[in-house]
């Protein structure tokens, strides 16, 4: 439907949403899918652009970008910048995007030590060598939360944020309301 057709039919255009997983475990995306049948209501309100669900590779102009995972390599930086340049609202989703999370545990060690442990000294490694193919993105020396690389508008904490947290966040945001979580959704111990 073109915008004109939509205007004639009295419908507002759907908001465009893109998602990406940087250095994370995809748990946040799985949790998003845990909204179960509410996803049918969601797709009445939004249209997915680039996400692992649609398999669209290039992000287009979007209203909302959801980023899971921290920034650990050069490709993460590239994807994150593309999202920032194309999304009006960028959201850090989950512990890794917000703080670096589990992958950032490597920050306590030198990158060289990490790579040698995996590719040189690891148990069962044959033909030990650190990969250097140009197809493989180079690792940053530390893992960073995404707000250290681009400006972030919202932070959705949790490991992962629960389905209800996603649902509340998206429906409030789409409705243009201030986002308000009941205590149970942002209480972690």
């Amino acid at each position: 439907m073109s915008e004109m057709e939509m205007a004639e039919s009295g419908k507002t255009p759907k908001l465009k949403v893109a998602t990406a997983a940087l250095c994370g475990c995809f748990g946040c995306h799985m949790s998003l899918l845990d909204i179960d049948e509410r996803i049918l209501k969601l797709v009445e309100l939004i249209e997915f652009d680039r996400t692992p669900l649609t398999d669209i590779k290039k992000v287009g102009k979007c209203d909302i970008g959801l980023i899971e995972g921290g920034v650990a390599n050069a490709e993460n930086v590239e994807v994150l910048r593309e999202f920032r340049n194309n999304c009006d609202i960028l959201v850090a989703v989950g512990a890794c995007a917000v703080n670096g999370g589990v992958p950032a545990m490597r920050n306590q060690f030198d990158l060289k030590e990490c790579l040698e442990e995996v590719y040189i000294h690891g148990i069962g490694v044959e033909n030990p060598q650190i990969p250097n193919d140009i197809e493989i993105p180079l690792l940053l020396d530390k893992v960073h939360p995404i707000h250290e690389v681009v400006r972030v508008d919202y932070f959705l904490p949790g490991c992962p944020p629960s389905a209800d947290t996603f649902w509340t966040f998206l429906t409030d945001l789409i409705a243009g309301e201030a986002i308000s979580f009941p205590y149970s959704l942002i209480h972690y111990d």
Partner: peptide
């Protein structure tokens, strides 16, 4: 906005290790 750290410099170790 400015990143919190020098992005290109943070690849230096990797460049050194891989010779790329």
């Amino acid at each position: 906005f400015e990143p919190a750290f020098d992005l290109d410099a943070s690849l230096e170790v990797s460049r050194h290790i891989t010779g790329r």
